[in-house]
Design a protein around this nucleic acid. Structure first.
Length: 342
DNA sequence: ATCTGATAAATGACGTGGAC
DNA sequence: GTCCACGTCATTTATCAGAT
């Protein structure tokens, strides 16, 4: 087994000092051409690769970004992570991924682990209960950007979709199509994103003179297993035959909604008009096409990583938080065709 | 006095070995 | 059982010898 080579080995082989090798490899100092060439040749010959950990130890810069999301396996976060990774790589950064499942202890643990790894910056999907840890990071001067959420009242950079207006627009789409009894299926998670989606729903009803019916708002417990979740959604749909439209506030809820509708033998949009948050492939394929609120995933990710990179370069003044809420795109398909046309 | 080419030593966090 | 020096590894500062 060949042991890993360090600059020490190169120094020994070329009868120079460690310092000289380091200078040659990094183009610094004043080193003669002959010695430089000898060192570079030797380095190549023995397959030298810099030890990133040692560099980080010395410089305090790890060139690693910590990415904390709800679930790296989900379509939204998966797509977002791809963009972030690609952009980070252009600047020489690598990513460590963590999933929290929106659980406070997992979130804290993820941040603790990343801190131990001395990551240079953090991109975090925040939720209630993580305020203290995130503020601690900022206190230590670590760049932090929040994505897909934020902490109300705290001055921290964040990028997310405009949840309120996204749902407002979607519900208005139902109403313009003649639908009045609009169901709203969300999660019981205490997330600001979901709060704002609910606010958008309520505002749309109010501004159209429709009385809000609390019975048509259903909060599915987050930690249920899938079959139990499906059962509860089916029950919700069945117990409200007057409901003529339904909106799901996340992609996994939307997919579950499709399954329920199929299993109940309902027709979209004749029996039930349908909109889901997040445009997943299945929504474009499932007949007659499901109208979706398409999040600007690319932009959220791009802005998020750009803001973080500029903070890490120090080119952004301290305590100048950048806060962005980006408009979504309502993709209208067959599931929201107007009543009299269907 | 000034410039070149090179180096020793300090630095960073922390587990380990040896001394007491 | 406590404690400090040491090894890990690459970078950087301060510095030195020798040449101009």
């Amino acid at each position: 087994m060949s042991k890993k080579v360090s600059i020490k080995d190169i120094a020994k082989l070329t009868n120079t000092s460690i310092t000289t090798v380091s200078f040659v490899l990094n183009g610094k100092g004043h080193i003669s051409k002959e010695i430089s060439k000898k060192i570079l040749d030797t380095a190549k010959e023995i397959g030298y690769e810099p030890n990133r950990m040692a560099i980080g130890l010395r410089t305090g810069v790890s060139k690693v970004i910590g990415l904390v999301v709800e679930n790296i396996g989900g379509p939204f976060f998966g797509e977002m992570s791809k963009v972030i990774e690609a952009e980070a790589e252009k600047s020489g950064y690598r990513i460590i991924y963590c999933s929290t499942d929106n659980q406070v202890n997992k979130g804290k643990e993820a941040i603790r682990m990343l801190t131990q790894q001395l990551v240079d910056g953090y991109i975090i999907t925040p939720f209630k209960g993580l305020e203290e840890e995130v503020l601690k990071l900022i206190d230590q001067g670590k760049p932090v950007v929040l994505v897909d959420g934020y902490f109300p009242g705290l001055n921290i950079s964040h990028v997310l979709v405009d949840n309120y207006n996204s749902v407002l627009k979607a519900v208005n789409c139902f109403i313009e199509g003649g639908y009045r009894n609009i169901g709203f299926v969300t999660s019981d998670l205490d997330l600001i994103q979901l709060d704002e989606r609910l606010s958008g729903y309520k505002s749309a009803l109010i501004s159209n003179g429709i009385k809000e019916n609390p019975a048509l708002i259903f909060k599915l417990p987050y930690l249920l297993d899938k079959s139990e979740g499906l059962k509860q959604i089916k029950t919700f749909i069945n117990t409200h035959p007057e409901m003529d439209a339904i909106l799901f506030t996340t992609n996994y809820l939307g997919v579950m909604g499709i399954i329920c509708v199929k299993e109940l033998g309902l027709h979209i949009p004749q029996d039930l008009a349908f909109i889901s948050f997040d445009d997943t492939e299945i929504f474009s394929v499932y007949p007659p096409g499901i109208t979706t609120i398409q999040q600007p995933v690319y932009q959220i990710a791009k802005y998020g990583i750009d803001i973080l990179l500029s903070q890490m370069k120090g080119s952004t003044p301290e305590n100048a938080a950048t806060k962005l809420q980006i408009a979504s795109n309502l993709i209208e398909r067959g599931s929201t065709v107007a009543k009299n046309e269907s």
